[in-house]
Design a protein around this nucleic acid. Structure first.
Length: 821
DNA sequence: ATAGGGTTAG
């Protein structure tokens, strides 16, 4: 075999083989480049290792990386080691990048790190920076920080090192730490901004984001399209689509990511119509769409329960030769599941078999996501046999928590929650999978607490062999949620005895528990000691808790002073809490001032307007109520609709005001009319003033009896066995008239009624009501997630995977499955 | 001759 000389493989040996379209005088090196790797590899495998030829290996690996084939790059590296070559300081940055891009397992990364040390390249700044980046991408924050700290001790950190560590924190759910490192770091370039903006976005720190935007404008870095895109995305994620649009329109250079960020922003902020308009525009302008664009639109439809529309987009996508990926298919399947579209689901299954699953070099971790979505889809389409056989096809070692969760949802849908819990225990014991055990048990604690049964939550907690930080916090939250502050604080003490160190979240829970249980002085004490003794920095959330604590006790001026003395910018939630307290205590003057501050910050939030209007209504200042309403009308801000849902034998049903979409609507309205007649005899008087808060003036009379919570109650009564409790959830606060009606109704029906709304629990029992609890911002956010349930066309066809799609968090899914079991 | 940090969809 004749081997060409490796040093000059690129000049063509036969110029006649060149394509005719290429003029002869062109430099020909790049023309033959695509063929190079293949030959070079053949040649290299026949040569004995030598440092002067190492360059060719590096070049091969670089080519693989550029071709977006990280696995190939790592295989080449393995091959060169097997053939006895020694990598150098150029090789490592390449292979580290490749292993970061795979990021499915940090094992490769760890062994590469040890190779680096053995060969003595850890002092090379390029190599160390690549290590930090690799660890960041693999989610091994501790090691990323270790490498960074070693560099920093040697004083060799440069701009790239700082950017790498910021990126590591930002992409691993530590936006606070990312921002901290950004502030500490020295020089700021485009990449620094692109790293820090998503961190701002993920915590809604739009004020900080705005400053970064300002800096980008002043420094001229906005010209960089990556920076512009990150700014657009930051505003979009903070729900400030107006700002996002302004930046978008001002950008001279836009790319596909810019458009995609806008489409996603509109879709996620509830302005899906605008997203579609933009999508059409991209289509008209013949912008080449990629998988992200298509998936965003598909998931937009799927999240709204519009499975058939999602399917249409999918077909369009295939026709335009875009390749769907795992994200696309999972969104699509959840859409099919939502509308019970079995035939379309099968179509996607066929596509998946042909193009995705069982690829020789496919990523198993990705495949399982499609498998899970398929199983879920078949189950939701009542094709249980198919779901079972698919489940059996998944190898036991590949099954993950989601697989089991989906299957348990199929297998034990009719069992009570407790039996479900036992199944989980059994599965966990069988699989000796402690981390999942913890995860599920923590979910159970959360679920039982939210269902109003904190004592069972305590039992789950007591039975846990292994507890982690979340377990303690969840139970403490459960007690706080039910106004059992003393018990919450006991858990707080015991948690520390068990060796767990409280963090910022713990103190939010502690302060809220104090707040709701009226333990003002103890709350103040914890607030003062948290920083001094525990080293936990007081954030906006803690100030919000304190404002709530003082506000509930009627100490409004102290609350205001506290806000004025805040070392950080008061967030909207802080002002909102004070406004809420002003309404409770009827302090209209202060309320007006606070509302002014709040609207300066968040002019788009319908909640602020509603609170203000309710405050005026409580004070009987109807002219002001009308003024707020016309302000809302003129600025185009719409009050978000009230929605209630209830669990009964048939599953979960949900209702808007005056909703008639439920098949049982006629019975529901008849029962409601009957109940109202009967409670009027007992002394119930409809309180029409409350109607003003929720509906337009001209409709107030009639619609009082059609409030979503009343409809949900009637449905619950129709579909529950006598003696069983009825559990209703509402996304907003329950209206005063409904509260009074529920109290009377609980006197004449054989059901205890537990209503959870956006502020607390209400237990109605035999003609009396006890209200207890509090909600943190997280809880209200949970309600928003549940609210998206209703966005699915009808409750009976809404699936858990739709909700999974909406909230994107498996823990919520587990909770929802348990709740509906 | 060759190197490290970057945005969007679930």
């Amino acid at each position: 075999m004749q081997v060409p000389h490796p040093i000059q493989p690129s000049p063509p040996t036969n110029p006649h083989k060149r394509p005719h379209s290429q003029p002869h005088h062109q430099p020909h090196l790049h023309l033959h480049f695509p063929q190079l790797p293949h030959h070079a590899l053949q040649i290299l495998t026949h040569l004995s290792p030598s440092p002067s030829l190492l360059f060719w290996w590096n070049r091969l690996i670089r080519t693989a990386l550029r071709d977006a084939a990280p696995r190939k790059a790592l295989n080449l590296y393995k091959q060169m080691l097997c053939l006895g070559w020694n990598p150098d300081h150029y090789t490592y940055p390449f292979v580290l990048k490749a292993s970061g891009e795979l990021s499915t397992s940090s094992c490769v990364g760890f062994s590469l790190h040890s190779h680096v040390c053995v060969n003595g390249y850890e002092s090379n700044v390029f190599v160390s920076n690549a290590l930090v980046a690799m660890y960041g991408k693999c989610g091994v924050l501790g090691d990323a920080r270790k490498v960074f700290d070693e560099m920093s001790q040697r004083g060799v950190c440069d701009g790239v090192s700082w950017n790498s560590i910021v990126s590591a924190y930002a992409r691993n759910g530590e936006p606070g730490a990312a921002l901290g490192m950004f502030v500490l770091g020295g020089e700021v370039d485009a990449v620094s901004l692109v790293n820090v903006l998503p961190a701002c976005a993920s915590v809604g720190a739009w004020r900080g984001g705005k400053e970064v935007h300002g800096y980008a404008l002043r420094s001229g870095l906005v010209e960089d399209v990556y920076v512009g895109n990150a700014v657009v995305d930051m505003y979009a994620k903070c729900g400030m689509m107006g700002e996002a649009k302004k930046v978008f329109e001002g950008m001279e250079v836009k790319d596909l990511v810019t458009w995609n960020a806008m489409v996603t922003g509109f879709s996620q902020s509830g302005e899906f119509d605008d997203a579609l308009v933009l999508f059409e525009k991209m289509w008209e302008n013949e912008i080449e769409l990629n998988v992200v664009t298509w998936s965003a639109v598909i998931s937009g439809y799927a999240q709204r329960g519009l499975g058939f529309e999602a399917m249409d987009i999918f077909r369009k996508m295939i026709l335009s030769r875009s390749a769907p990926n795992v994200v696309t298919l999972v969104s699509l399947l959840s859409g099919c599941a939502a509308v019970g579209a079995l035939i379309q689901g099968r179509e996607i299954h066929g596509y998946a078999i042909k193009h995705m699953l069982n690829r020789p070099y496919g990523d198993l971790g990705e495949d399982i996501k499609v498998q899970n979505a398929l199983i879920d889809m078949y189950a939701k389409c009542k094709s249980f046999d198919m779901a079972h056989s698919l489940f059996n096809l998944v190898l036991p070692e590949e099954r993950d928590v989601v697989t089991w969760t989906v299957m348990i949802g199929v297998a034990c849908a009719r069992l009570s929650a407790l039996r479900f819990g036992k199944q989980i225990h059994a599965y966990v014991i069988r699989n000796r999978f402690e981390s999942a055990m913890l995860f599920v048990a923590n979910c159970l604690i959360d679920m039982y607490s939210k269902c109003g049964d904190v004592d069972t939550a305590r039992n789950v907690f007591n039975l846990m062999v292994q507890k982690n930080f979340i377990s303690w916090t969840s139970l403490m939250t459960g007690y706080g949620m039910h106004g059992r502050g003393e018990e919450a604080l006991q858990i707080f003490d015991r948690m520390q005895e068990a060796g767990f160190v409280p963090d910022g979240v713990t103190f939010v829970v502690v302060l809220y528990a104090c707040s709701h249980s009226g333990m003002v002085d103890r709350g103040i004490k914890y607030f003062q000691t948290m920083q001094r003794e525990y080293g936990v920095i007081q954030g906006a959330e803690h100030y919000a808790c304190m404002v709530d604590l003082l506000g509930r006790a009627g100490r409004l001026n102290e609350a205001l002073d506290l806000i004025k003395g805040m070392p950080i910018e008061p967030s909207p939630i802080v002002w909102f809490t004070l406004l809420s307290a002003c309404r409770t205590h009827g302090n209209v003057e202060l309320g007006e001032y606070v509302a002014g501050r709040l609207l300066d910050l968040e002019s788009q939030n319908d909640g602020s307007y509603t609170l203000l209007s309710n405050m005026y209504a409580n004070a009987g200042r109807w002219k002001d109520v009308a003024r707020v309403r016309s302000l809302m009308r003129s600025t185009g801000i719409r009050k978000r609709p009230g929605c209630s849902w209830v669990q009964a034998k048939k599953g979960t049903a949900s209702f808007f005001v005056g909703d008639r979409s439920n098949p049982q609507s006629q019975e529901i309205y008849e029962l409601l009319a009957d109940l109202i007649q009967r409670i009027k005899v007992l002394g119930y008087v409809p309180e029409t003033s409350f109607a003003l808060h929720d509906v337009d003036d001209e409709e107030k009379g009639d619609l009082l009896s059609e409030h979503s919570e009343k409809l949900a109650l009637a449905y619950g009564i129709l579909n529950s066995a006598p003696g069983t409790p009825i559990r209703i959830t509402k996304n907003l606060r329950v209206c005063g008239d409904c509260h009074s009606a529920f109290t009377f109704i609980s006197q004449i029906v054989d059901h205890e009624i537990i209503l959870r709304d956006s502020s607390r629990f209400h237990h109605f029992k035999k003609g009396s009501c006890s209200c207890r609890g509090y909600w943190t911002r997280q809880h209200v956010f949970d309600l928003d997630i549940d609210f998206s349930f209703k966005l699915c066309k009808t409750a009976s066809t809404c699936s858990q995977s739709t909700v999974l799609c909406a909230c994107g968090e498996p823990s919520s899914t587990v909770v929802l499955i348990v709740t509906s079991a």
